[in-house]
Design a protein around this nucleic acid. Structure first.
Lengths: 329, 329
DNA sequence: TTTGTTTGCGGAACCGGTTCCAATGCACTT
DNA sequence: AAGTGCATTGGAACCGGTTCCGCAAACAAA
């Protein structure tokens, strides 16, 4: 590898001069030319490990994501990236593949790389996480989960699910299938279910059956097929848009019309929810804005400015054709 | 920041001993305890900049992606990540937002960080890129584009588009609208169009009109509305699945039935293409496998093993309901 | 000419680790 | 008692940069 000393030797100057040249210090025009020439010929690129070692200006923010192929992650990442870039920081991404252990590993990996701060898009928080949060001396923000004493931005899963539940009931639905996911996922599995349940309980004649399925479209489709054939709900309330898409696919496969035969609602506000036919009624989370919020907050923390412990991201309910008044039987 | 010297001082040993302790060298049990205690109390994490400086074992691969919110990017990234992880490397991601200049910047940024190798998911290659390729002394693989003298994995855009074209013609379509994108994108804009054109030219009575639209679903939808109203093709051949989704949406909006009123084909093989109704006939690229291929190739290059200059990713045509024999008028 | 100011440059220390080498201490042989 | 071998430890050099300090030459002002 070609180093600054090589450049210095080859151009017959001290390495301090080369360093000065590189960082815009005062260098004579003749010397400047010589150094330029040598650098061009050797294709020299400064080693940023060595740079960071001395000039501690960490300008990287690490982001740990649970998966790379989800709408929510992608949008959040975009928001983080945009915001960071505008503040002259770089974003590093590590993928944890929804594995809590890897998540923690990645935190340490970022700590070793001396990032200025860490944004963690979390799925669940266990003891290992807490230990890491404590021992790490790096500012950290949790997105999508919360934990006492840790800065976090949370999606209002519970209250948005409540709002959605109210809407579903308002539309007249009483025989309801709720397709959720494992309770290991606190936000999606627990929060959304809880919010919906709260709404449902206010309506004495609502019959809700809660089912558990996976995050994949295929899996949701299979579950939906079973549910359609066993129970016969007037509406499928789904914990994610992907699950809703699975239900829609199942409906198409089996020859049912949405919303004539039954309604469907989603959760997330993925772009595709507005593209399919019929359009999905869904709760839209502003993931990108959440990312931006996370980014500006982490920078504030890095700079020692105060930040609220718990922040909320925005949401809105988007009404489309998939949710409609059920037929009178 | 707490350093190895602090640990050494606090536990009353030399820093070389601490280093040995950390890296599993021979340390007395008493000393071991003391050091352990101090490290636990201080929450010390080694600075990996300093580590990498001396012990040059770069185990990071940088990946530059044009966007974070596309199916193709996400799947490719997943493949890269999985493969790298199995070979004990880490993946760093930088986003270029489809900005060629940022793309090059990111290359240099990775070079400064002394990554072992770089995978570039490229959109177009210009002079700046070429200069960077030359001056960078880091193994690099191009995915999705090719350039003489640079290792690359390319999607067979041209020949897959040809195959798809043959299929469309075989189905009897003669009045064809091709919805492509800007020719600035060599793979999607040029390659797919060229392949399709080659197929079309073999069929003397085929009338193809070529339109240009954007990558977004919304934009494609608008273009589709115009095309439907002006020309009246029997099939829309779209350069991406997103464009096809836009056309499908337009059809739904305007009350046309697919494939009864006209057919649609996509390109890419996104999961959602199989979920919408009717399912989209499309060319499926194996993005994840491509990512894996890129990852194992870059590691080979890093290790000085030979790799083919130009590799091809796999594809297959998936026939679904959206492409069908047009009505006889 | 002398003095004062810049400007350009080299030398050396330093950042936080790793690693080589030599020294120490102790148990065990002979 | 002296010699041998091994485990443990400290000291110092080194990785590739940055930065501080000081010297010398060039130039301007007195």
């Amino acid at each position: 590898m070609v180093t600054i000393s090589d450049i210095a030797r080859l151009s017959g100057v001290a390495k301090s001069t080369v360093s000065r040249f590189l960082n815009g210090g005062s260098v004579g025009s003749h010397t400047k030319e010589k150094i330029e020439k040598v650098i061009r010929e050797t294709g020299y690129v400064p080693n940023s490990f060595a740079q960071s070692l001395k000039a501690k200006r960490p300008n990287m923010i690490g982001t740990v994501v649970p998966r790379l192929d989800s709408y929510a992650s992608s949008r959040t990442l975009m928001g983080i990236d945009e915001q960071l870039r505008s503040m002259d920081f770089d974003m590093l991404i590590l993928n944890s593949s929804r594995d809590p252990h890897r998540e923690v590993e990645n935190l340490y990996s970022f700590a070793r790389q001396k990032v200025a701060g860490i944004i963690l898009l979390a799925t669940e928080i266990d003891g290992e996480h807490v230990a890491a949060f404590k021992s790490l001396q790096v500012p950290l923000i949790l997105v999508g989960q919360q934990y006492p004493g840790i800065y976090s931005i949370i999606h209002d899963d519970e209250s948005s699910a409540y709002d959605l539940g109210r809407l579903v009931l308002l539309k007249g639905h009483r025989r309801i299938a709720f397709l959720g996911v494992s309770e290991k996922d606190v936000a999606v599995g627990v929060g959304r279910k809880k919010g919906f349940k709260r709404a449902a309980e206010q309506c004495s004649d609502a019959e809700v059956v809660y089912y558990e399925t996976g995050f994949g479209i295929e899996e949701a489709q299979q579950t939906a097929v079973e549910v359609i054939q066993s129970a016969c709900p007037t509406v499928f309330v789904c914990a994610t848009d992907n699950i809703a898409l699975g239900v829609l696919k199942a409906a198409n496969r089996l020859g049912f019309k949405v919303p004539d035969d039954f309604s469907i609602t989603g959760f997330g506000g993925y772009e595709i929810a507005g593209i399919v036919h019929p359009g999905l009624t869904t709760v839209k989370f502003f993931y990108k804005e959440t990312g931006k919020m996370a980014a500006s907050s982490i920078i504030k923390l890095v700079n020692g400015q105060p930040v609220e412990q718990v922040m909320h991201s925005q949401y809105e309910i988007i009404e489309r054709e998939s949710l409609d008044i059920p037929q009178v039987n």
